[in-house]
Nucleic acid binder design. Structure first.
Lengths: 149, 149
DNA sequence: ATGAGTGCAAAGGCTTTGCATTAGG
DNA sequence: CCTAATGCAAAGCCTTTGCACTCAT
């Protein structure tokens, strides 16, 4: 959905990592590449399965680093495992549609009109509560076509 | 936010539990009471701390039963512990505003106009994706007034 | 009576951490 | 060079499960 190219992302990654004094290492490059290569958010297990040479602890640590750098977003659903995808400034702002039976997650976007109206509304609510907003998150929970067969 | 009284809830609870062949026992009553007595979603630890006589395993098991019965909702946020509150048909439909630093969760409602517009929009999206929707979930993530001091 | 519910302790499963080794700048 | 990053294994932590006991209908 975004037009950001792979090389752009490498530059972004390098710069955002160095901003928090972290290196863009081979392992971290590989994680970014894996996430770039999937059309939907994936779990750590799926990442580990995609390359048996990956060390579990490094994947956990590096996803955490990439998340801190603002390159990767961690998605928590219900009881399922956490899913990971590239950050919104790379993929564009979107929301998630989650299949409860199989745990699969797809990205979707609201129409610009609704998105804007929602953001305005949320801003007002945050003000009422004395909160400063980082972001909002909207999920659709249900059953995908495959699982309802 | 709802006008449902405690006795109404006891009847609801009894009926919804019996619908799935579960009893409305002393422990389960106590959980409902605890949740009724808090204005915001709480964690299992907070429940356990509220009464040292509660057995951890029973709290886990009974919250799961109450959730299956549709009486209790489990809220998953980020890395924090799960939070629990009474189900929406008791509390009314609402969303969550989450303080990332301290993990506290508060309930809020959208204006009816935005809520309706959002639901309509989500329905269309779900149709596009071949999903059947159970529910949607909207969270505001940020920092509460207390934590930003 | 008799199966559901309970409570304790032990086991599970995902995630994090310690530590020696390797590699990036 | 010199610290950050890595990988293995061990430890942590929340949650679930096994099992004998108790309670509800």
């Amino acid at each position: 959905m975004s037009t950001t190219s792979a090389t752009d992302i490498d530059q972004l990654a390098a710069s955002q990592l160095s901003a928090i004094n972290q290196r863009y290492t081979k392992n971290r490059r590989q994680l970014v590449e894996i996430l770039l290569g999937t059309s939907k958010p994936i779990t750590i297990n799926q990442i580990l399965e995609s390359d048996s040479k990956l060390a579990q602890s490094s994947v956990y640590r590096n996803l955490a680093v990439l998340e801190q750098a603002g390159l990767v977003a961690k998605i928590i659903t219900n009881d399922e495992h956490a899913h990971y995808e590239l950050a919104e400034h790379i993929l564009d702002h979107h929301h998630h549609i989650i299949c409860s039976p199989c745990g699969e997650i797809l990205d979707f976007q609201l129409t610009e009109k609704i998105e804007k109206a929602l953001e305005k509304s949320l801003k007002e609510i945050a003000d009422d509560y004395g909160f400063s907003i980082d972001r909002h998150r909207l999920d659709l929970l249900g059953t995908c076509g495959e699982c309802s067969k």
